[in-house]
């Protein structure tokens, strides 16, 4: 049997530890963010109290971790400045189209979070799928309609009727009256 299969050149072979662009700027920004986070955790945890050696307070463990993170971030900064941070072999900056797809995915997720309790699951999921199919997958309109209906209504039926999971109905009475 001959089949056509696509190659996705950007798909990473490993989900746990894939390579990426370890460019200097990226490393420095990463180290800075890590330092700020570590320092914030360490400083905030002082307020939780250290207790005594026999009964450690709520702040001991986070203080230790925050300080560790800040220290490691400093070491990361120094190593990056000295050019000793391991770099990956290929730059992995997203293409313009890739940035657009990622942004649309975030917009869709934000839309889901904002609307699901207002419009109900079926309408919101349909809108999310339609948006992504039209902008990310760029499939023909009839496919957008078909897949949207199958996913919006089909997944509702699967989860609610098949798995007994409750999904939200619309918060707007008129929509709820329509069974959405």
């Amino acid at each position: 049997m001959n089949v056509e299969t696509r190659r996705e050149p950007d798909l990473r072979p490993e989900s746990a530890e894939p390579p990426g662009d370890a460019g200097r700027a990226g490393n420095l920004v990463g180290a800075l963010v890590a330092f700020v986070m570590g320092a914030y955790v360490a400083i905030t945890s002082i307020g939780y109290g250290f207790g005594s050696a026999a009964r450690p307070g709520a702040g001991v463990f986070p203080f230790a971790i925050g300080s560790l993170m800040a220290g490691l971030a400093l070491a990361w900064t120094v190593m990056t400045v000295m050019g000793r941070t391991p770099s990956s072999e290929a730059p992995s900056r997203p293409e313009r189209q890739g940035v657009f797809r990622i942004v649309m995915t975030m917009v869709a997720a934000a839309g889901f979070v904002t609307l699901v309790d207002v419009l109900g699951y079926q309408l919101t999921m349909s809108a999310v799928i339609a948006l992504l199919l039209a902008t990310v997958a760029r499939v023909r309109w009839w496919l957008v309609v078909t897949i949207t209906l199958v996913m919006g209504i089909g997944s509702y039926a699967l989860f609610v009727n098949g798995l007994g999971v409750s999904l939200p109905a619309a918060g707007i009475p008129a929509l709820r009256y329509l069974g959405l």
Binding site: E4, E8, P9, D10, L11, E95, V99, R101
Partner: peptide, 11 residues
């Protein structure tokens, strides 16, 4: 990560 780049042809 999988959608950040272009999608290539089939084999």
């Amino acid at each position: 990560l999988s959608i950040k780049g272009s999608i290539a042809s089939a084999a």
